[in-house]
Write a protein that binds this DNA or RNA. Sequence first.
DNA 1: GAGTTTGAAACT
DNA 2: CAGTTTCAAACTC
Length: 611
Amino acid sequence: MQDSPVFNFLNNLSPIEPVKSIHITQTINPLSFASIPSVFTSPHVSSLKGSRFLKRHQLADPSKPEFATNGGKIIDKNDPIIDGANKSDRTHENHNPEDEAIYQPSYECSKLEIELGQSLVYDSRCSLLSAKHSAECAYTSSTFVPFIQEASQKGLYGSGENEEGVNQIDQDKEATGCDWESFISDATDPLIFESPINAEFCKKSVQSGENFYANVRNNMQNTLSFSEAGSGEQVGEGSETENPSSQLGEGSELKKIAETHDMVAGCSTSNPSENMDNEPESGLYRGVRRRCLVFETARALRKHLDKNSDSDSPLFMQSDGNTSSSDGQQIPPKDGSDSSRCVLAGIGLHLNALTTTPKGYKFVAKFRPPASQEELLNNSLAVTMLDREISTVENGVPPVEDDSQASRYIVNEEIAQSSPKKKRSKLELAGEGEACKRCNCKKSKCLKLYCECFAAGVYCVEPCSCMDCFNKPVHEDTVLATRKQIESRNPLAFAPKVIKGSDSLCETRNDSSKTPASARHKRGCNCKKSGCLKKYCECYQGGVGCSINCRCEGCKNVFGRKDGEGIKSSSPNSKRVSPHQSGLGTSPEVRRGRKLILQSIPSFPSLTPKH
DNA sequence: GAGTTTGAAACT
DNA sequence: CAGTTTCAAACTC
């Protein structure tokens, strides 16, 4: 990557020396990823900007008129139809000085992002996806197929659409000269890889109402180039091609969407029709992604379908606020349904991403499409809730959650429609009790971080044994307000506790003690008696080793012990690192970068068409 | 299932 | 920021 033109370019411009340090790892703010694109008008840019910040408001506050509709006129002059093969060669062309001026602040961060390596970059995308953009989008064939089928049952699609969509993959491959499949096969993390696509997709299709199909093409290619060369690549993305949205009649959009979904799905997964179970490792990620995305897709399409069923208005012209997601008017939230819980859990997992399995769990995903509109609605509410999570993740480091939670999620879905007894039974059987999240709160009303559900960003549901629970869709306002309050106290309160960091995170530890993914607990544990050998220890529970941030005593964490007490006592930083500190690190460059990024945020709305 | 232990979260 | 209290999960019996 460092040999890429982009890197060289960045290296020439920025005074920051390429370093790989703990600071970088912990200080890259996902916002930076959003901020970079937000300044430029490339598809990637706009989408991140819009969906990350604006769509959040859409979900949270549908009444905001500026988000209600844009008339489908978000013109992305720089929205290129890319010749995928040459994408990386025209990275810094055609951006005007204004853009550059705006862009500059976050530039350093983009450089840092490049330096982090692909995995980190991908993970960051994942963060972006998980919280926000995924809300209305889905792209994998496996997720979309069921929905298409559902739509087909409604007479909206022909039965052959799905196959057409798959075929479209090959067609698109030929058209673009880019072999998505081979590229993807090289990707280390298909889940993460896909994220930016989703982000793009969301913004384009849902928020701006632009042509779905064309945008996905663009987005995919942008994503690929971005993934290959880092964020800097997007910077100069030229304005070579007008967004072709106007070129396609809206009457054909529905079909196009179906095709697009399959097309993207095909690009995201090397073989849309393959059985995930045949490929356990990749299936793990795919499974998660699919689960998450299915609801996202469904929601997007539901809106889409609702809209079309009600009027002839263009697709995705309205925000959530005008349809019926946050819009509980049309479809009241179903309080505490199993399905919703599972859906939410899925998104929560999505948000928190993945890490290595602490107990060698194999994540075998089984797809289950959303059962009802209520389920979709609940999902949308969850997205609203989870939107906020992503905004609190200050680490550019991908949020990580252990596979046990993934397992929980899967199990959760499986048991979702079972009786409570069966649920518990299955829960106990699965993953050594690592089933879905369910709480037993008595006094907290499930509105404190004590509550695992609340802390995980999911609503409580039937399997929970909580009392006076407010963590339900019907109390969404309360939930969101409480979350906001908690976040005001600790912006990272809802961020994943375990982050997948760089090796530098464990620089004080022996290499032999590193956990595979070098993941570490964000704040470290404070165990006194458990020896970090029981699940009382959050490090152990997260399947990660203890780190310098831990203040545990007698650490025997099997995933990696904290280094000797010498280190602990000699370090002035032996105390717990506050989220803010850990997020910013000590690098002046990083701090500066973050500051500038934050300053750039207010510019987003000005770049977004309003009415 | 009840009771205990534990450490994070919340509070002062 | 440190100490204390509250809380619920994890654990034990």
